[in-house]
Amino acid sequence: MELIFGLITGVLFGILLQRSEVIRYDRQLGALLLQDMTIVKFMLTTILVGMVGVYLLVDLGLAKLAVKPLILGGTVLGGLIFGAGWGLLGYCPGTSGGALGEGRLDALAGIAGMLVGAGLFAEAYPLLKTTVLTWGDYGKLTLPQLMGQHRWVLIPWFCVLGYAFLRWLHKRGL
């Protein structure tokens, strides 16, 4: 049953990704070059709606947060490495599947590369776990915890800041 829900959710998400063109190489490179902010508009809107909805569910006792640990070594180094690879490939892991679905064959080469990258990471994991992944480990941390504020004090501010940022992008024609 869980697998069927995964498939249905993926199909709906794939339709949204494809019809808003955020899975296109040209759009992803456009975002990295700060020329076309379509994917930033999509992602930020998703994050804001998701933030409000998920915290409502949590407060109603209908869902649990899935917080990942903040490990600066892994997040900062991994982010830099991911960014370099993303710039070369022009698709991220989820969107490479979407790009393949709309006929982009270069996504297949990217997917093959990602399988190799995943395999290499699995090889390196025992070493990384005792080195990089111990640097700056703050455990599971949320922004409300970090800032010492109640989440419903911060959430309206994030919404206002997100809206202001999107308006700014819009005015600059990005």
């Binding site: 991911f82 370099a84 690879g85 993303w86 070369l88 996504a107 080469a109 190799v116 995943a118 290499l120």
Partner: peptide
């Protein structure tokens, strides 16, 4: 694309 995919995935897993 292949090289980028390998690098991106290694970074993504490192950042969890």
């Amino acid at each position: 694309a292949f090289l980028g995919g390998a690098v991106a995935m290694f970074g993504a897993r490192l950042a969890d």
